[in-house]
Amino acid sequence: MQPANPTFSPLYQQIKGLLLKSLQDGEWKPGELIPSETELAARYGVSQGTVRKAIDELAAENLVDRKQGRGTFVATHNEAKSEYRFLRLAADEEPNVKPKSTYLSVDRIRASSQIAKLLDIKPSDSVFVVKRVLRFDGVPRIFDEIWLPASQYKGLTLERLQQCNSTLYGFLESSFNVRMLRATEHIKAVSAQSEQADILRVDVGTPLLLVERLSMTYADQPVELRRGWYLTDKFSYRNELY
């Protein structure tokens, strides 16, 4: 039996991995300027072109943000263009209207076996359960139930959420240094139960869109599970496919 051939990654991929580690370790914080391509090339002993190719991939993955004439910055959810990156609900007639969040409750509980499995934690571990409603022009359109591993969000309270002036992801990034980098979603049609009907001001049995999202940070570590019930009579769930 012949030994398996070793697998070699291109040099720029190796540099990308080193840059990712620096991001993951917090060497450069969200919104901060990272060293120039020339400085990074000298640091890693490679060409500037190799560094540029690695950064190009990080930019394509929304991990860094190139700004003409200013340099490359660590991407942040507090940037206007990234604030609603994961929000796909848009009004059919006014798609640019942004929602206003109202946080209803924050409770700390033991994770169920299902939630623990999805968040890759132990069933005995604690999670925060956040409930909120999102209103468009004052009308409730989304009811969210959000599970967050308590060990990563120590000190989270309803009062802190109610006082934050950014999106939830922007708040979690700036307050707990947790960045949501990518997410997987499952979507299906459901009927409103009593809690969703009460919050969304509709009748029990009203058709809703249920969106379950698992959000990951570096190294694909799950850091948030969200179930959102969407009222779509005058709204659409929009996405771009590549």
Rank of each mutant, 00 (worst) to 15 (best):
P3Q: 12
N5I: 14
T7S: 11
P10A: 15
Q13G: 00
Q14L: 10
L18D: 07
G26I: 06
E27F: 10
E32A: 14
E39R: 11
L40P: 01
A42T: 10
R43V: 07
R43H: 15
G45I: 06
V46F: 02
S47Q: 10
Q48E: 13
G49I: 10
T50E: 02
V51R: 04
I55G: 02
I55Q: 08
D56G: 04
E57T: 06
A60P: 01
L63Q: 09
K67F: 04
K67V: 14
K67H: 09
Q68Y: 09
G69C: 08
T72Y: 02
A75K: 02
H77S: 06
N78A: 03
K81C: 08
S82Y: 10
E83D: 05
E83V: 07
R85W: 03
L87H: 12
A90G: 06
A90R: 15
A91M: 10
D92M: 14
E93C: 08
S101Q: 07
S105V: 04
I109R: 03
I109T: 09
I109C: 01
A111T: 06
A111N: 05
S112T: 15
S112D: 06
I115Y: 02
D120H: 13
D120R: 13
P123Q: 11
V127R: 02
R132T: 03
R135Q: 12
F136K: 06
F143N: 01
F143H: 10
E145P: 00
S151D: 14
S151M: 07
Y153D: 00
L156H: 05
L156F: 08
L156W: 04
T157D: 04
L158I: 05
E159H: 12
E159F: 09
R160D: 07
L161A: 04
L161R: 01
C164Q: 15
S166Q: 13
T167M: 03
T167W: 03
S174Q: 15
S175T: 10
F176V: 07
N177S: 15
V178W: 00
M180D: 01
T184R: 12
E185H: 11
H186R: 13
I187E: 11
V190H: 04
S191D: 09
S191A: 14
Q193C: 01
E195N: 04
E195T: 08
E195K: 09
A197V: 00
I199V: 12
L200I: 03
V202H: 03
G205P: 01
G205L: 07
T206N: 06
P207I: 04
L210P: 00
E212A: 12
S215M: 13
M216V: 11
D220S: 12
D220F: 07
L225D: 01
R226S: 11
R226H: 02
R226T: 10
G228P: 00
G228K: 01
W229N: 08
Y230V: 02
D233W: 11
K234S: 14
F235R: 04
F235D: 09
S236G: 13
L241G: 07
Y242W: 00
Y242M: 10
